[in-house]
Nucleic acid binder design. Structure first.
Lengths: 198, 198
DNA sequence: GTCTATAAAGTGATAGAC
DNA sequence: GTCTATCACTTTATAGAC
């Protein structure tokens, strides 16, 4: 229960604890099957007290997504800044996204993918705008590689294939298993630029 | 509303119409946000009448999944039987799965992926057994290719990467767009065996 | 900032007539 | 096989005391 109470990028304020607990429950049971009573109970307060911190239950979901997008966009920026060649940058992006998805922000990231449609249309639009910044970082790196001739497939399509590969990882990847995240990142990298260069 | 009332592999009986309507609603709104009143209304009956055909709402969800797994497992079998080389078989499998996921059984397949956890544990186990047969067909073909030296990555991992790629396609692929399903299948095939051989 | 109490609405499922 | 009517329960959110 206390296994991963803290989600990276979310502080330890009452609001932060509420968000972490919500992310955990939303991932486990889904947004609809999680009640405000569940969330309240897991931080030790009564259900009515939730609404002092958030106007609606949906606002909690949105806040989880907003926080995790901001945190991981910054992580992507740092991954790019830390390398100079297109290939090294792409490997770093893949590694960073895997870390987001099966590592320290796994719960909130999974929630973002699986509970997306539980957001109202206008909140979806707002979150989509934030996600657009994140995606642009990917597309810049992929376009550079494409222009250098490292792969021929359209960069937009390649990004979508990568999104699928990384996004599915929580359903099978075992962090205690023999395959490391770095190994997996290299395997995915090879799907883009081939196995030749290493 | 009548856009794709029929899901391939589900007949036109009252039960079949109920399943198709449910699949459509489950994909659009999710299992939890779809009420039995919604399903009943979309086939023109009252909510109480649903329970003459299905014991519980969850049984409807399970039936949708069971039907679509059976139908698409058979499609995979035919794809394999129609080709002889490992590479042609893999391309046919990818093409068949894309057809399942963004084509004629798109709604039910999406439901299977996104509403999986809405099934009770015992129904999940039953559905998982059916899915195991489907997955084994993939693994046989991938293992053959691996043993022939067409790729070096572990076949289990390769299958999971492919699952991610095809499973994400409904979120972006446009059947009216310039990219055909055959094109996309070839692009995904190249992620496995490289772009060299054509 | 949290509590208790409750309003207001919706839910899956059942019973029995036709 | 579908209808009407309804039960029993759960849900989000609010109000006002402390």
């Amino acid at each position: 229960m206390a296994e991963s109470l803290a989600i990276n990028g979310i502080d330890d304020s009452p609001r932060g604890r509420l968000l972490s607990a919500a992310a955990h429950l939303f991932r486990d049971k889904g947004f609809d099957r999680t009640t405000v009573r569940d969330i309240a109970a897991s931080v030790g307060i009564q259900s009515g007290s939730i609404f002092h911190h958030f106007k609606t239950k949906e606002d909690i979901l949105y806040a989880v997504m907003e926080e995790v997008i901001h945190f991981n966009t910054e992580r992507l920026r740092q991954a790019i800044a830390a390398h100079h060649s297109g290939k090294d940058r792409l490997r770093a992006l893949i590694r960073a996204e895997l870390q987001s998805i099966v590592g320290d922000t796994a719960e909130a990231m999974t929630v973002m993918v699986t509970e997306w449609r539980c957001l109202s249309a206008d909140k979806q639009a707002r979150a989509l705008k934030l996600r657009g910044i994140y995606e642009q970082l990917w597309l810049d790196v992929l376009s550079d590689l494409h222009d250098q001739g490292d792969f021929t497939t359209d960069p937009f399509i390649m990004r979508r294939l990568l999104t699928g590969m990384t996004g599915w990882a929580p359903n099978w990847f075992d962090r205690e298993g023999p395959l490391s995240l770095d190994d997996l990142a290299d395997i995915m990298l090879a799907r883009v630029i081939g196995e030749s260069a290493s």
